[in-house]
């Protein structure tokens, strides 16, 4: 029997896979995609909890998270384009001019 607990564990695993991606990758776009995985892991946890508690609020919040993710994707990708245009790179370790 599969319960919401199984989905919670899956959510935790996906979240930290995304986190490893954020830390280890150099490519800003891949980092960005890893962030999307983390967001979706969070969504999964919300939906699982809604299921477990029998309240709809968890699903409603996922709706908002998706909206914010969409907005973030639009702005974030625009930032990456602007950055690429100025620095000719989207490698995270080469973009360090804000150090001091």
């Amino acid at each position: 029997m599969i319960t919401s607990a199984h989905f919670m564990v899956l959510s935790a695993v996906l979240f930290f896979i995304g986190a490893v991606g954020v830390v280890t990758r150099r490519n800003l776009i891949v980092i960005f995609m890893s962030v999307e995985i983390m967001l979706n892991a969070g969504n999964l946890a919300f939906v699982a909890i809604a299921n477990r508690l029998g309240t709809i609020d968890g699903q409603t919040i996922v709706f908002f998270v998706m909206t914010v993710a969409a907005a973030e994707a639009a702005v974030g990708l625009a930032v990456i384009i602007a950055m690429f245009r100025n620095a000719e790179t989207i490698k995270a370790d080469e973009l360090s001019s804000l150090r001091w």
């Binding site: 986190a19 954020v22 830390v23 280890t24 150099r26 980092i31 995270a92 370790d93 973009l95 360090s96 001019s97 804000l98 150090r99 001091w100």
Partner: peptide
Amino acid sequence: WSTGNVSHYALTFL
């Protein structure tokens, strides 16, 4: 500690 490398900051975060 302030390397300017986002990856290091992210690891610190983790």
